[in-house]
Design a protein around this nucleic acid. Sequence first.
DNA 1: TATTAGCACTCTTATTAGTTGAGTGCTAAA
DNA 2: TTTAGCACTCAACTAATAAGAGTGCTAATA
Lengths: 348, 348
Amino acid sequence: MVKNLDERKNSILHAIIQEHIITASPIGSRTIAKKYDLGVSSATIRNEMADLEELGYLEQPHTSAGRIPSDKGYRYYVDILMKNKGINSDKLIKTLSEITKNRHGINGIVSSMTTMLSEFTKYATMITEPEFKDLKISELQLMKVTEDKLLLVMVTDNGFVSDKLINIKEDLDKRKIRYINNFLINKIRDKEINELTDQYFKEIENELVKKINLSHQLFTIINKEIDELIKPEDVRIYIGGTSYILDQPEFNDIEYLKKVLNILDHEDNLKKLIKAKNNKELEVRIGHENEIEEMQRCSVVIANYSIGDKAVGKIGVLGPTRMEYPRVISTVNIVSDILSKIISEVNK
Amino acid sequence: MVKNLDERKNSILHAIIQEHIITASPIGSRTIAKKYDLGVSSATIRNEMADLEELGYLEQPHTSAGRIPSDKGYRYYVDILMKNKGINSDKLIKTLSEITKNRHGINGIVSSMTTMLSEFTKYATMITEPEFKDLKISELQLMKVTEDKLLLVMVTDNGFVSDKLINIKEDLDKRKIRYINNFLINKIRDKEINELTDQYFKEIENELVKKINLSHQLFTIINKEIDELIKPEDVRIYIGGTSYILDQPEFNDIEYLKKVLNILDHEDNLKKLIKAKNNKELEVRIGHENEIEEMQRCSVVIANYSIGDKAVGKIGVLGPTRMEYPRVISTVNIVSDILSKIISEVNK
DNA sequence: TATTAGCACTCTTATTAGTTGAGTGCTAAA
DNA sequence: TTTAGCACTCAACTAATAAGAGTGCTAATA
């Protein structure tokens, strides 16, 4: 859909973007002529730059400044020009792998992974907790903990375990619990989570009430907790490295900075920001491609992480559109791989 | 220890601090004379201000500016001058109480509480997850979830429940698990957590190995998990409202802002910041009283929240030393009460 | 025809000097 | 002891000027 440019325009655009990513300021024709050996004079480059601006790949902040890349320019760079940078991944892999040893629990791992990712990329980063939609439940157990507390444990088909405590008002004898347990697991096992509708639970209740003497109130509580466990509404999202945002000159404007930080303060915004539009393994969202208006001077690199072949969470890196895409993309890929492995491992 | 000033100095200092909290700029003698009806002229106030400066309660940014309060001035204000403001707490209490209904799990509650607190105070806020030191264990159960997974559930003497999943390499039959269970709970019940030393666990192991055929490796795993459950090393700390920091003119200096945000990015710093020096219910740490150097232009208001009469977590509000102490303190007190109630309720 | 050197023109950024005004500190009178 | 009056200080704002980077156009060149 995007028409390729000729070889010389490619080189010049590439050079301008690379230079701009380093310096953060508009790039003039002389800079390119001097630093990059393109075999043409600055005047020629000047003409090409005028063309590239007309085509929408470059912008000019004002008449007598150099050019900066437009969102379209960055898009072309990411899709076509950029070469994936072979970052030195040894240290990264080693550091990340250490995390499992020092931190405990999924939350701890995801949280330190977020910090690590931001320290490596020097941008703000986000990672969501793993979530379970599209999974099947293979095990569900209700256990008595104390007189008025039950524990609900769920195991998904890929071996992920989560649990939840249920407060009940009335005492339930163990035999009854065992009965409910068996009944439930038979009804729920190997069902897709989205098959477990309210309607379906209603049916279960009716049957269950017929078979044993179980109060409506009690089932409602259990039902509600199961529902929350299998369809957690608020998946936590961890954010790290927000202070790196201030390293970027594009955020020197304190009013704008405030808007951005305000967005990052609210989880629902973070979720929007990181929500993948399609099922690509890795997505780069540049400037105006972000749906949140205040974020349209930023880019986000988003990747999935998975248990088995099912994506269970997202990893995101947030920076200015003038982001070091190659380095960030490589890093995100590595982190995605490792996090997938660690999370799968924890549940083995 | 701090000597009280005479009545007129009190009034003038009070007026200056109040005025400075509103305007954020140095306050001159004429402003005080005009706005506050102290019955003396600006010249008199000027003389008093010179005295107050000499005594260390005020500072002068430069010769021809008004005065601003020093840390010592704020301390005097907080300890002696300030009247607790009866904030309109109805809305706050209502909003906070709603949280339990919409959010689930301790984490969700603490997280939304943090957001709410920052929205009410308009400052950055921190709340730690509840932790359990000084508590006793009243119930401990080991349950089989799948072939290679056990679930460990702990109930403390004040009714708090937490749990942890244990991956075991070998199969354990239910009879054995029940045995270990009974054995453990008898050894651990009603012990203070700090009595449960490595040494003590070693003894338990020896006894247990004698009685049933249990591999050292397996016990080590279980032991480790119990240890982590009862002595969680990394208590999470939630932070919210960081963008409010930018509303304060004292953070307009982008270099300083960066330092502060960088501190807030790291949990260990947050913990230092919020760590109470003494057992007071509410502590106000002003400027240089903060141990983190970069935070010495800030103040923190810290309160505990509790289950029963045991403090299990901390609530903190972070702002410039020119913080609206009365309002913040009232709010923090209310939030502390409500959070205590909610957390206790969840575990009833 | 494509490229390049040269130059006038544009616009931002940095610098300097000058002005304003709030506020103090001191003195002398009440 | 308090107050009016006034000279003095210093940051903050404003305006004017200078410097510099970069463009776009024209005319010469390969």
